[in-house]
Simulated scan of single mutants.
Amino acid sequence: MEIRHSTNPADAKHYDTARLRKQYLIENLFQADQINMVYAHDDRLVIGGANPVGKKLTLEAADVLKTEYFLERREIGFIHIGGGEAVIETDGERHTLGKLDTLYVGKGTRSVTVSSANPSEPAKVYFTSALAHATYPTRKVSVQEATTLNLGALESSNERTIHQIIHENGVQSCQLMLGVTLFKPGSVWNTMPAHLHDRRMEAYLYFDMNADARVFHFMGEPNETRHLVVSNEQAVISPSWSIHSGAGTSSYAFVWAMAGENYSFKDQEFIAMDALK
């Protein structure tokens, strides 16, 4: 498990491209027959990817956590982003996930494994895990069961559908929030106008991109913006002080996840366009 320590905006505005990418971009989450994880000290979110091919992969408590098992003091949300069906077993209970199906697993679950239903069609499963103080039941949902918001317009190139899955009016958790945003044809801008929520960090996973497509992900303080050039199936850590917005060279989708103080999707401060610099 890789560790990424927190940063503050006074330091981050001096970072060059290499430092920005090292600090905030996660490039190699999905590798055959591996579970890869990053421990972000921003709200102690763990960001990970599993790509089981010929093996059943076990979610283990790395030395970083100093616990007997991974979910001893944590909760986790899995979302299947591509390939064939994924199979997640939680304390012996089997859950099969198709594309964009989500599985929430609560604190106290001792055994979690991830495998592909068909090794010839390997699954890719993205997950985020937050600290938890109470136990909520394990629950699988499809994207069709999510709370759905249709926002933006084609004229502003940001007509999109937001599926809120793990949140206050959906799958219950302690503090983890997770959903997926899909775009209408011809739209490429996400989360614009930009916003902040100083009480929560956020992580984005960009996916369903062509090999030569890129997303220009904008971050930083509103008056000190920076950008990352992001490829398919790469993730971005967004500190609570940073905006998080992006535009793609072609079609894409992204999974967003949050953890922190307030358990409300509406806890955000929009930034006026003339305040961005």
Rank of each mutant, 00 (worst) to 15 (best):
I88T: 11
M201G: 09
Y252T: 02
F218L: 09
T161V: 08
S187M: 02
W241Y: 15
T109A: 14
E155P: 00
G48S: 04
V46N: 03
A253G: 12
G82P: 04
I243R: 00
V236P: 02
T102R: 07
M273F: 05
L100M: 10
Q172I: 01
T128G: 09
K99L: 07
Q268Y: 07
M201D: 06
I165R: 01
G246E: 04
S251P: 07
L45F: 01
A130K: 03
L154F: 06
V143K: 07
S173Y: 03
S111E: 14
D267R: 05
M201K: 03
Q234C: 09
E233C: 05
V105A: 07
T191Y: 01
L178P: 00
A62Q: 15
R74D: 05
Q164R: 15
S242N: 11
S111Y: 07
H227Y: 13
W189A: 01
V53A: 00
A12Y: 01
A12L: 06
G186Q: 07
A132W: 10
A130N: 13
Y15Q: 07
G220H: 03
D274T: 10
A132M: 10
V215G: 04
E93G: 01
Q144K: 15
G48R: 08
V105T: 14
L154D: 14
F218H: 12
T225F: 01
S142V: 13
A32T: 09
Q34R: 13
L25F: 03
K140Q: 15
D274G: 02
N210H: 11
M209W: 05
G248F: 08
G54F: 06
M1L: 12
A213H: 08
I26K: 03
R94Q: 11
V180Q: 01
P239L: 11
V64I: 14
I76N: 07
H95T: 05
